[in-house]
Design a protein around this nucleic acid. Structure first.
Lengths: 210, 210
DNA sequence: CCATATCTGTCAGACACTGACAAGCATGGC
DNA sequence: GCCATGCTTGTCAGTGTCTGACAGATATGG
């Protein structure tokens, strides 16, 4: 009843309206910038009232970053499906692959780059994006703790290891996005991620879950 | 003329008023929370108008995170003073030590923990903090590029290495802050940082500036 | 003592966001 | 076909952050 991805008619039309709003909004954002576009402009573009737009998106940033929230669930599911014996760094790399694949999926890959650029250029959007990444890291850390617990080598409650490794991996993701935006000619985001994640990695001082 | 840390009378009184506002605001934030405290409340607490408070702080978040901006300059200076032959990871560790030392300095160390907790608990504040860390990373990456340039082994423009290493280090900083807040009994932030930065690190596939 | 610069309060406004209410429109039982 | 129910929508009103403009108070420097 809450906010599931039901196949009901209501939920379907709701998602359609969401897409319509996001589509019109992104066009305006690309055209005249994020901050220079008001909610009223977006509402007028789709023929709705300002209030209704806010019924579909809790905040202005969510219009741009809303898609990311949907990917997060897929990424966490991908992480859970990774074999327990796999090195953590590899599992995190494969988790990011889910996001990269959707970003480079054919059809709407043209909008990905300008939107990406806007997110990293607009302070408010970058802050919101980093906040979402941070929130996702909490979920990843929980998963890593559960995995270590299942392996018989749980982390101590105040052990910074799982969060440090996770934060380092997410740092590589952001570095890859930066590098991808700066690359000329434009390479693939997947290769940028691979290169970034090859430059750093976890250190295993003693035996700790192979 | 712009915004330097002059020793003039004007700049001195201005910083005094800033401190007074921040002090009163932090008391209110700790007492009733960040979001539940309005600018009008803060203005009333220091006997000023709402408009004048905004003349000293561009945003509500800056009242809390303004001190961080001052530390950033010291940290960047510390990074520049590190010997060029020192491993990057160690240089970054020493850079963070500057911030840790100020956080654990005697006198105002009691306020550090509750403020820390508020920052990590309040979404808007966490987002603003992460944004500032990201902006600082840009400066650190520039410094690392300049250092590699001076060493005769410059990075390519789209090489994600310097940013990935930097992002990983900052991830360790955040992980250390988390671990420090979660630790009972409360350990030192410096030791938490040391443990976090020991868990991950750069990989040197080939010879690249010792 | 005066010209200049700075600080201040007040007013007004843009903008994001929220709650409340009533009207429109659908679905589903009768 | 008809009506009750529930969801969506627009309108209105309000809060809170943040900004610009103006005028008065205060301080600085010649």
């Amino acid at each position: 009843m809450s906010e599931k991805q039901q196949a009901g008619l209501r939920a379907r039309t709701r998602r359609a309206v969401r897409r319509e709003i996001a589509q019109a909004a992104e066009a305006l954002f690309v055209e005249r910038g994020f901050e220079a576009t008001t909610i009223d402009d977006i509402a007028a573009a789709v023929g709705m009232s300002q209030r209704s737009v806010h019924r579909y998106f809790a905040s202005k940033e969510e219009i741009v970053l809303g898609k990311f929230d949907l990917v997060v669930d897929d990424m966490l599911a991908a992480l859970r499906d990774r074999p327990a014996a796999e090195p953590i760094w590899t599992s995190l790399h494969r988790t990011f692959d889910v996001m990269v694949a959707l970003a480079e999926a054919p059809g709407h890959a043209e909008l990905v780059e300008p939107i990406h650029r806007i997110v990293f250029r607009t302070p408010a959007l970058l802050a919101a994006y980093l906040q979402r990444l941070q929130r996702m890291q909490d979920a990843v850390v929980s998963e890593l703790r559960a995995r270590a617990e299942a392996a018989g080598t749980p982390y101590a409650d105040d052990d910074p290891t799982p969060r440090a490794v996770t934060a380092a991996a997410f740092g590589c993701l952001i570095a890859a996005q930066h590098s991808w935006l700066a690359s000329t000619p434009k390479g693939s985001l997947a290769s940028a991620l691979g290169r970034a994640m090859a430059t750093v990695g976890p250190r295993e001082p003693e035996a700790h879950h192979s």
